[in-house]
Amino acid sequence: MSRTIPIHLDSAGRGPGPAAAGSPAVRRMLIGLALGFAAVFLVLPLANVLVKALGKGVSYYQTTLSDPDMRAAIRLTLAVAVITVPLNLVFGLAAAWAIGKHSFRGKSLLITLIDLPFSVSPVVAGLVLVVLFGAQGYLGPWLDRHDIRIIFNLPGIVMATVFVTVPFIARELIPLMQASGNEQEEAALTLGASGWRTFWHVTLPSVRWGLLYGVILCNARAMGEFGAVSVVSGHIAGLTDTLPLQVEKLYHEYNQTGAFAAASLLAMLALVTLGFKALLEWRIRRRYERGQRAAPSGRMEAGA
């Protein structure tokens, strides 16, 4: 159970159980109902984005995306992701090493704190930054005197994004590091490896796919975050509008096609994320099946 989208492996190879073996009418009804629901809530929204974005032809799509404000929004979105993801990556690795490889009191409390941003409304996340750094905020007057602008500026947008994406990489890595145990690292130590070397050559390779998945999820959320960023952005065209904010702005300007063009870029991001997840699941399954085949066969001949 996860608050993100967990890597999920089918119970491959299990045949249909007694429930599936039963009456074909019930089976068809259940599948029909489920697919109807999936069509309305999954397939149609996706199809709609793609169709509407290209509704006025590819050339209009191109002009919309070459609009300077749109380009600025794309650049800002990329910049936010480029700053946010490494910050949460380093944090995720540190937290996973401390939590996954060591035992200490208060571990579950710390995990709960890391999970907190999942439970906080993005709007509230934006608000707390305004309370801290806004004109009437705690640090507002001091920042004003030193001519530092955080709210309605890039730092505020980054902070809001970092807040909402804190758990993503850490929560992928912690269970992985916990599950792989400490023995491989201990083995490296007995062979004389330093802590760093052990981490780079033993720990990191063993969690690399989970790490990559966490980065992809974190990136998707960082580029797509709307609520928290909306509160701290100030919506200054060409300066503090990210791509998702641009979608809203165009929508309110009754520029449907423009809104959908911007949205289609983000939808693409979502599809890439899902594609990567599918790839990862496929890899793990393949590796698992290979392991299954290799292990019980006992002694294997060389070069087989």
Binding site: E183, E186, A187, A188
Partner: peptide, 21 residues
């Protein structure tokens, strides 16, 4: 003396081979 400097060879019960090597 740290583990690294004891110059011992240790074979773990479940071998602890480096899975990525």
């Amino acid at each position: 003396l740290s583990v690294q400097k004891r110059n011992i060879g240790f074979v773990f019960q479940n071998y602890a081979l480096f899975g990525s090597m």
